[in-house]
């Protein structure tokens, strides 16, 4: 069982540090970096959030789900584009991150799909997104909401 530490103060400090600083890690082995999302038009459309999730520990970690007060059905989805250039999206299921490895949630690949928004995603705001791991561990990251046309965390 991995150690979990209270990160409230640390989290607040890191948030003040801005985007370039690795964001709040709950289970100490998991580091979430460069989280961002796009503003939504209203609440009817699903939103998407992106980030890099790094496992700095010695054991694999398994990401099993997401929760956020922003959306009733947050889920990791994957966009795939086939040989004919047709794109489709489907739930990605559990994601295992090997020790020392990271996974990228980025446009056109894995993304946190935010279905059934409870409020519009407004540029300049942030929202908390909690990553759930199979050992009961959780990591909450504060995700900045950028413009609709944003291309990456630096936009």
């Amino acid at each position: 069982m991995k150690k979990y530490i209270l990160t409230g103060t640390l989290a607040a400090l890191l948030t003040l540090g801005g985007l370039s600083v690795p964001a709040l890690a709950g289970p100490e082995d998991v580091v979430v970096e460069n989280a961002w999302s796009r503003a939504s038009i209203g609440m009817n459309r699903p939103g998407a959030a992106y980030m890099t999730i790094r496992n700095t520990g010695d054991e694999p970690v398994t990401l099993i789900g997401l929760t956020t007060p922003l959306a009733m059905m947050p889920e990791i989805h994957e966009t795939k584009t086939n040989a004919e250039g047709v794109s489709s999206m489907s739930p990605a299921g559990e994601i295992v991150i090997a020790p020392g490895e990271s996974i990228a949630l980025e446009p056109g690949g894995l993304h946190a799909m935010l279905m059934r928004l409870q409020e519009p995603m407004t540029e300049g705001d942030t929202f908390p997104l909690t990553l759930l791991f199979d050992d009961g561990g959780e990591v909450t990251v504060e995700v900045p909401i950028l413009g609709i046309a944003a291309r990456g965390p630096e936009d």
């Binding site: 459309r45 999206m89 799909m113 935010l114 046309a149 291309r151």
Partner: peptide, 17 residues
């Protein structure tokens, strides 16, 4: 389509770039 959360805003942003 405008209800597309990932590919379409990305393509539109790419094209804008």
């Amino acid at each position: 389509f405008t209800y597309c959360p990932d590919v379409c805003p990305t393509t539109l942003s790419d094209i804008s770039g």
